[in-house]
């Protein structure tokens, strides 16, 4: 059985099977004002980011606004982003969450906060659809394995941006219980998502 390479990602006859542009290569092209590189990064990460934005805001229009702003920022500041110092999807995700929660809570992020998010190191690559799908499956499986109260508490923290005491206030659970649940959930995530 021979593989039909022509069906794969933009196959180059020289390269054999499809060569996938790395995030670093695409960011460099974006820095040189290459719209198509920006479009490729958008295809790669917009779905993931829009999903988390929508989960936080539950508002399609607001989620798209933030999504567009983030990619527009990438377009304008790509030269300042050093892929060697941090993960692009990590940075995109952290910025998306920060902005969505800021909007949810109706306050603006503190100036300078986002520049400090450049050194985020993701423990895995998300450059291909297959890698993304695999990781989505793993994260969802880990979340489903958590006890229901741990999962719910973790989701209040991540998707609603609540602190320990705010979660305690919202749920009526003792502060110590909330802290224990979150810590246990985080420990489980760390150990089960270790690559």
């Amino acid at each position: 059985m021979r593989i039909s390479y022509g069906a794969a990602l933009g196959v180059s006859s020289k390269a054999g099977p499809a060569a996938i542009s790395s995030d670093a290569a695409l960011v460099n092209r974006v820095a040189e004002r290459d719209e198509l590189a920006l479009a490729a990064l958008y295809d790669r990460y917009a779905g993931m980011l829009f999903s988390v934005l929508h989960r936080i805001l539950r508002d399609t229009q607001a989620a798209e606004e933030i999504l567009q702003d983030i990619f527009f920022q990438l377009w304008r500041t790509a030269k300042e982003f050093d892929p060697k110092r941090g993960s692009l999807p990590g940075w995109l995700t952290v910025i998306a969450r920060n902005r969505a929660i800021s909007r949810l809570r109706r306050h603006r992020p503190e100036q300078g906060d986002e520049l400090e998010e450049c050194n985020i190191a993701m423990p895995c690559t998300l450059e291909t659809a297959a890698a993304q799908q695999q990781l989505i499956g793993r994260v969802k499986a880990v979340l489903m394995e958590l006890p229901a109260e741990q999962r719910a508490t973790l989701e209040l923290a991540y998707f609603e941006g609540l602190t320990h005491s705010e979660i305690a206030q919202r749920t009526g659970d003792p502060l110590g219980t909330v802290k224990t649940r979150i810590r246990s959930a985080v420990e489980a995530l760390k150990s089960r998502l270790r690559t």
Binding site: R55, S87, I120, M122, L135, I136, V139, L189
Partner: peptide, 13 residues
Amino acid sequence: QGRIALLALGAPR
């Protein structure tokens, strides 16, 4: 931060 960012993947698509 990178590990916590993975939670984003738990959002419904």
